[in-house]
Design a protein around this nucleic acid. Structure first.
Lengths: 244, 244
DNA sequence: TCGGATAGGCGCCCA
DNA sequence: TGGGCGCTTATCCGA
């Protein structure tokens, strides 16, 4: 595809709020939250209808260069290079894609208002704990979720027979940072309530060895809980394969 | 494009290690680290040469559904739906894209081994501090970067006239979590060295009010440093190329 | 808009 | 492979 033809396609795509996908050879410079330079190579360029720009290499999950939505996109054809300039005033960032060749490109008006229905995130986990407090201990009575303090939000706040209980949930292996976070909340609650009678419980499917050492050193507790729903369908699938 | 034709294109693309980009109407189910369902809608499907799969809506930076590289991809045409199944054994994850319509699709062999040259990350910042220790204090003498402990890696480790100095760098506004991290290192070093003579310094362009309160409460220090001048490395590279 | 936290985070490095 | 952590993180949510 000629560069002039691609320029026209890009501009038409932008004005009509279409989404554009193109295989191009290009060189890229970015300046904003950092500075990057990407030598010439073949990539996939994606320009979405929200004026976000994504440049993908043939491997990896993340774009190698990108600009967030709400960018101002312009194109200037200069002899044998199409210079696509993307500017985002809010982000104080600019991106310049110097396109030297276009292999192929498609563009259409994509409309999709559907949202993703997701189960198994941390909120589901803390909801489950609130509704199944016995998994922590027989005495545990949750009071509320997302209790706010000036050092952050406590996932589940409650009490047991003796005193206050602070719960921090992680849907994956708990790390040193998770222990820090719980400690921060527990110290704050102790300080606010003027008591040492505050239990801190880290709830997660697992915990790293170093994190556990640190946790126990602080007098905090670990409670193993698997996130709800996780792997449900995967395991069912594996089972049915096994059945055959 | 007919579903059968698209199936052939997909399979050919996979076997030839090409990258595929397609506008499709589809419904999606995912099971793995969580469970998701996405009702039917129009999206852009991207299948990269590393067998990673990315489904993009017309807005937003991240794919609405995806699978990491190394997946096993198969397709089965069943009357009026092409069922694309993606399985990743390592991730224990499973994705099914039920394609009901294909608007347009392109595929080609993308080859791009070029790496991104990036300047202005946290490493550059700690390098700069190591080379300009006076910005911390006149007495500060850096010893090494990335000092390893069992509670994580210390960005810059050194000493001043009185004792040990631990520096944690953040390239953006320092948060409560950054204070946690620094405190964790300082406590560990105090413990290892059996001394209280350990200064902890959080270096960042700014810090949130709550984080600063917590920092000072722990006897730690804040030092304002902007991330190093951008394009520094790139210009230096250019300069050294020019020198030859 | 700022602040705090999660994410199906990803990707990199290192033991 | 697991642990620790930065990221042009993005995204969500609440004040």
């Amino acid at each position: 595809m000629e560069l002039a033809e691609f320029k026209a396609l890009l501009l038409e795509s932008l004005s009509a709020n279409k989404t554009l996908s193109a295989f191009i050879r290009c060189e890229v410079q970015y300046s904003g939250r950092a500075e990057t330079y990407l030598p010439e190579g073949d990539r996939l360029l994606l320009v979405k209808s929200d004026n976000s720009v994504h440049l993908h290499q043939p491997q990896g999950s993340n774009p190698i260069n990108y600009m967030k939505s709400g960018s101002i996109i312009s194109a200037e054809l200069d002899e044998d290079v199409l210079s696509v300039a993307i500017e985002n005033v809010k982000e104080k960032a600019w991106l310049e894609i110097s396109v030297s060749f276009v292999y192929d490109a498609i563009s259409m008006k994509l409309e999709d208002g559907r949202a993703l229905d997701l189960a198994g995130n941390e909120k589901d986990m803390s909801d489950w704990i609130r509704d199944n407090p016995h998994c922590i201990s027989g005495e545990f009575r949750p009071i509320r979720r997302e209790e706010q303090t000036d050092v952050g939000f406590i996932d589940v706040y409650g009490h047991d027979g003796d005193g206050i209980v602070v719960v921090e949930c992680k849907r994956v292996t708990a790390s040193l940072a998770a222990v820090d976070q719980l400690r921060r909340y527990v110290e704050r609650v102790k300080n606010l309530k003027g008591t040492d009678g505050v239990r801190g419980i880290l709830v997660a499917p697992s915990i790293t060895s170093n994190a556990k050492d640190m946790l126990l050193g602080f007098g905090l507790e670990f409670c193993r809980v698997d996130p709800p729903k996780r792997l449900e369908r995967w395991l069912k699938d594996q089972k049915s394969i096994f059945d055959y």
